[in-house]
Simulated assay, not measured.
Amino acid sequence: MRITAVTPVILGYRKSDPPMSRSFALVRVDTDAGITGWGEASTNWGHSYPTVFQAAVRDVCAPALIGQEPRSVRARVAHLRTRMDGYLGWEGLTSQTIGAIEMALWDILGRSVNAPVWQLLGGSGRALPLYGTGTTMFEASADWHAAYFDPAIAVGFCAIKVRLGRERDADIDVVRAVRSHVGDGVRIGVDSYWFHDARSALALAEDLVGLGVFFFEEPLPQYRTAELAWLAERSPVPIAVGERVFSSRQYAELARTRSAGVFQPDASICGGLLESLDVAALAAREGVLVYPHVGGPTAIGLSANLQWADAAGVPLFEYDIDPYQPLVDDLAPQLSFGAIRDGRLAPPSGPGLGVDIPDDILERFPYAPGETYTDVFPRHERGTGARP
């Protein structure tokens, strides 16, 4: 079998809460056997720069892959690393792009032997316990945010994640309202999306521990390694990182410096399924928990992460409970919110990733340039938003 085409496919739509554009970066890999594989890259919530991904796939990756054997997954990844790492760096866009292509190769391999990818990775196809992701409607009331989780609690979610990024007292009020609303039987994590520096994050963590918060995600930028290690040593709430960690190398450095108690790898960010499994193995050796990060991708990225997470035996898996996700609901009803039972979701049982992409996908969800998260929330991402 040989690769005949490698095609970037960029998609988009608008969401309403908050109003902003969502864009997505997929890759399609075709073969002379008539088998097609799909993969997805992410910048952590869809893809903020899909045209950059498009150029990397079209101009760098496709020429290196056409004519090659797609089922030799490790060889293809090694070749792409040679092409990209030394010139574009070995993190960021490089890892996202290689991860997307690696997914597509696994999809082809699974379809070629009529087996789901989780089976090829040694998984069992079990349904994974989910935690539901909150929303960035920061202007909404604390009670509104508490009620936002009602649909998730109704279908058995055992844990939820509250989005932070207001003034300190307002953030505490929201978490307190959510705790009062859901009761003590539901675990609560929080995510501040690089809003803090180390000292303001520590002060907030000391207030949140009494509300039963079990992880504090992305309190400050991960490249501030000394600050992150200082915070992790002192925080009464375990620090979680992952959506801006791009490789097992970076995770190894975080483990060495004891900078986090929870790792959150995402195959569409950190280089693919094999890299995510490497992170899970590292975490097991170092006594770090693994809760995969799955920030609202299409059905392709969601399925790919379920595949490796099943094989790794993770105890908890993220699920975006935003009610408008047509690139999950329309493409893979078996992965939609309506398919969740007892707060759990299993990877698809079909061959490969188990998701079929319709031919009219570009017409139904055309990409249009729009706001990135940074445009909508300019105080975030700098690690200074909590300062007066």
Rank of each mutant, 00 (worst) to 15 (best):
L306W: 05
F263H: 00
T4M: 08
D278A: 15
G338N: 12
A104I: 11
D107F: 07
E206S: 08
Y324S: 11
V241A: 02
A260S: 04
A311R: 03
A311W: 02
M84V: 11
T135H: 11
Y319F: 15
A140F: 07
Q222I: 10
M84A: 08
M20G: 09
D171C: 05
D173T: 03
G34H: 13
G287E: 11
Y193F: 12
Q307W: 04
V186I: 15
D59P: 05
H47E: 09
F24Q: 01
A142Y: 00
A281I: 13
A299G: 02
Y373W: 14
G67V: 12
A304P: 04
L306K: 03
D359L: 15
Q54D: 15
Y49K: 07
A100Y: 01
I98K: 01
T135F: 04
Q264H: 04
P116I: 11
V245Y: 00
Y324T: 12
S336E: 02
I153G: 04
D173V: 01
H380G: 01
D329V: 13
D59M: 10
L331R: 00
S200C: 01
T4N: 09
A62V: 06
G12D: 12
W90M: 13
T43R: 02
I361A: 05
D207C: 15
G210M: 08
G301M: 02
K161H: 09
V328Q: 00
I361C: 08
P369Q: 10
V376A: 10
A283N: 04
S303G: 05
S42G: 09
T136S: 15
R249A: 15
E371I: 04
L65W: 04
D32E: 15
Y13D: 07
L306R: 03
D150E: 15
P347C: 12
G12A: 08
I98V: 15
Q307A: 11
L164C: 07
Q68L: 14
T133G: 13
S235V: 03
Y87L: 14
V294T: 11
E253R: 13
P388H: 13
G67S: 11
Q119N: 14
F216T: 01
P63K: 05
R176V: 02
R244Y: 07
A159G: 09
V73W: 02
E139W: 08
L302C: 08
Y49R: 12
G39H: 00
S336C: 10
Q334T: 13
Q222F: 02
R256H: 14
V29I: 14
E69P: 10
R71N: 09
S95G: 09
A312I: 11
E381Y: 14
Q222T: 14
F53T: 06
D330F: 10
I35P: 05
A267G: 10
I340D: 03
P219V: 03
T51Q: 15
D330P: 13
